[in-house]
Design a binder for these strands. Structure first.
Lengths: 333, 333
DNA sequence: CTTATGAATTGAATCGTGTCAATTCTTTGA
DNA sequence: TCAAAGAATTGACACGATTCAATTCATAAG
């Protein structure tokens, strides 16, 4: 068994309190005691027991990151940002994957509570959840990631998804498209709600005609399904806007397989601007979000909230999305 | 502040011991007490304090997962598998990203020791590392992921990379190619070593001529660089085999931009068979690995090693890679 | 109505560290 | 040499769940 504080104390001929001081407040210990104790620590290969330490202090140096889909490169990019920022401040990260399911999300939140994380960064899979208050009551900070909060009692780092939806429709209509299909996920997902709002708002201004194709999950397999639904429509649109790039990849595959040309027959626009976009069959135009930056900012904000709880002021940071034009969108013929 | 065992006990009118039994050995508690206590637990929203539990039992319910690149969809797929399997056994996962750097790897291992993880799953970024013994001495189980071990004192779950390299070259030579470029990463990475061995072995048998292009990291940006190097060669190869799909994507982009046609001018083969492969500009032929299964198996093996330490027999599980043919490889003209 | 037996419950001791009031030691100035 | 102030050290208690020997309760048999 490995040595504990008491062993070190006995060996060095001092009390446990002194050994603890050597570790945590070396300045109050006399130089020669300090040296002797440190030597003993080294000799015994003593490493403080993290459980006991954290049990006593009440705080861990871990945070939880709950995202809706780790397989989505957008979120891995975000996760990298979170991890880098956390690691810089000596925090470890639990990565949890809710798969857009509220049930899985709640399950992971319980696990995180048990692990006594200091804070949680979460991309909500549903626009309303009560669990967060539950976490706060336990002294666990919560910050929203990639979602805006109306509620100023929490931090959030997001991208202006309403604006993103608008930019998309403005782009497509500026190319002459009026018949547009909006391919999206469940309308319980906050991002979906906001992007839809932007789409509809811009459509009203530009007099575009939007039909919605909704799928239960926002991955590329579902995109293929969406393509089938689009092909079955009475009237083919001249442009398609997808709620994320994964959907767009699936739609692209479905359409190309059916002999539809992109962008000649139909323009296709994605959202997220993931790295694979320009390696795609038709390089994908997309609405870009600063994913890595989003992660870094969120982690820094959360950790600052954890550590400077009294002076911390909640912030709602909002980044702006940007249009990235590639080959998949073109003027209507 | 959140409720603890004592609060629950008081509220339910029983002793702390009984509440503990309700949680850990429900069979010894009478049905009606069980029900009453469980109701109280729910009412108070009680979640046991992991630290205290772990302090007493000496063990945590967390494992660490160290991969070389989370941004690589192959590893996210592996991570999903690990997470699902771990979660099924009530373990939480720390995800760490070594970026193929031994330094970062060691740093994360220290963090994991501090967090008192029960076990670590690791994809080594270097073929030799002493840290693992260090972990074992502290009672932390270690299993190798996506890497084989010669050493039978540890578990490993891997794919036969030597065979993967062979399959690749056999495929390309069967299409008539003899001038092949092997695009790969640093020869300190175990997978690179094995795949190279397979490549060279098959090349000898099939009399293929292999030239190696080596890049420092195995991502798609480096693939673009590799393409430049290939274009600068005295003699263009007729086929290119890349150590992973990300590299292949980069090479593809680099070549297409230079006006080289795939597969008419040159065949291109990747490794990993990531999901984006068939959405690529030219659907990518690749060597497929059972990523999700790899993760699930590794996590189960590790947890079994942690929990049944005495009866546990170390296993080296090896999956077989498979060729997936798409459009990027074709017979030599 | 006892007594024996097994089931259910109790609560004090424990894990290893941090904290802090109390104590001891050292130094300084008169 | 002594008192006072400051520095260093001590050690009991707390954190919250688990464990297990001891106790109480319930049931059935005699």
């Amino acid at each position: 068994m490995s040595a504990n504080l008491r062993d070190v104390a006995r060996q060095a001929g001092v009390s446990v309190g002194t050994v603890s001081n050597v570790l945590n407040r070396p300045d109050v210990v006399s130089p020669k005691t300090l040296e002797r104790v440190q030597k003993t620590i080294a000799e015994l290969g003593f490493v403080p027991n993290g459980f006991a330490r954290q049990l006593r202090s009440g705080y861990s140096r871990t945070i939880g990151l709950v995202v809706t889909d780790v397989a989505n490169p957008f979120f891995t990019e975000v996760a990298r940002g979170v991890e880098d920022a956390a690691s810089k401040r000596d925090y470890a990260v639990f990565l949890c994957n809710s798969d857009e399911s509220l049930e899985k999300e709640n399950k992971y939140l319980s696990v995180l509570i048990q692990q006594q994380v200091r804070g949680v960064l979460i991309t909500p899979s549903d626009s309303k959840s009560h669990q967060y208050e539950n976490l706060r009551e336990r002294g666990i900070s919560v910050a929203l990631l990639d979602t805006e909060t109306k509620n100023s009692s929490q931090c959030s780092v997001s991208v202006d998804d309403v604006r993103g939806g608008e930019i998309a429709i403005e782009h497509l209509t500026s190319l002459g498209h009026r018949e547009i299909v909006w391919v999206t996920g469940p309308d319980t997902i906050p991002q979906v709600i906001d992007r839809t709002t932007g789409v509809m708002r811009a459509a009203k201004v530009t007099k575009a005609d939007i039909s919605t194709v909704r799928v239960p999950l926002m991955n590329s397999a579902q995109g293929v399904d969406a393509a089938k639904k689009i092909l079955a429509l009475k009237k083919m649109p001249t442009a398609i806007f997808c709620a994320n790039d994964l959907l767009a990849f699936g739609v692209m595959r479905g359409l190309l397989d059916a002999g539809i040309r992109i962008p000649e027959d139909v323009s296709l626009l994605g959202y997220d601007d993931i790295a694979f976009g320009n390696s795609a069959a038709v390089p994908l135009s997309s609405i870009s979000q600063p994913a890595y930056q989003l992660g870094v900012t969120a982690a820094e904000l959360l950790i600052s909230e954890c550590e400077e709880h009294e002076v911390h002021a909640h912030q709602q940071i909002k980044f702006q999305p940007q249009l990235v034009m590639r080959a998949s969108t073109a003027t209507k013929k």
